[in-house]
Design a binder for these strands. Structure first.
Lengths: 122, 122
DNA sequence: TCGGCATATCGATCATCATCAATCTATCCA
DNA sequence: TGGATAGATTGATGATGATCGATATGCCGA
């Protein structure tokens, strides 16, 4: 609100869900739909155990780890770890590959960097 | 877990709460305390309305905005906006300056960039 | 000093989330 | 084929969070 009686110059840019992840060129401030999608990504990062999962996977030999690698260091039950991994996969941060009995998780290349860019581009 | 019967090579590095935000040089994976602190920061970003608040403040004239600038575009009640702003201030992302009756909020310089760096450095 | 305005805080409510125990599915091996 | 193992799914529970109405605080102008 401008206290000299003038109009505010802010422009709210709305967008459809389909284009929620690509930024319109003329955008001034984040629209509701884009904000929703980006918040979803940060929600995936807003848990200490999920941050540790990403860190352990990144530091693991070969850049991948299976669930049994991740249960012990986090001191969580296997279903809970599996649940967190699913959230990270759904967010596009982790990749899941099943080989035989084991499921191997690895970082999606560039995903963390793209997420970081979201912040600078806010 | 290494399936050839050998020991795992992962090292968990713990740290006290006091040093939760500075990364020890020899660190391999995120310890529980560091993860806690970093998750707290991402929690502040994990809400679409708070992302829009940051975006509006950043795009505002002079880089600052008061609560009455922010209530209308978000279509939220004033107490709710005030609540979100407090979370962003507590997270170190926004700065609050009271001038007369109005409270002006502005981005903490470099805060978003530092948060982005947390991701690349995971 | 008083009334009005901007903002903050409080208390309650409803929704979301993290976690676990139990169970299910799929794969491997004997 | 049957048992064992890795991982996913389900259902329940306790905790955390977003939102609002009501109220408190603090500042300004008459």
């Amino acid at each position: 609100m401008v206290h000299n009686g003038g109009m505010t110059t802010l422009q709210i840019v709305e967008s459809t869900a389909a284009e929620a992840c690509c930024t319109p060129s003329g955008m001034q401030v984040l629209g509701a739909d884009e904000a929703q999608g980006k918040a979803q990504l940060f929600k995936a990062l807003a848990d200490p155990n999920r941050l540790r999962l990403l860190s352990i996977v990144k530091a693991s030999d070969g850049g991948e780890a299976c669930v049994c690698d991740l249960t012990e260091p986090l001191d969580l039950g296997q279903p809970t770890v599996s649940h967190h991994l699913k959230i990270l996969v759904d967010a596009g941060l982790l990749h899941r590959e099943k080989r035989g009995t084991w499921a191997y998780y690895s970082l999606v290349p560039g995903a963390l960097e793209r997420t970081a860019d979201l912040l600078s581009a806010l």
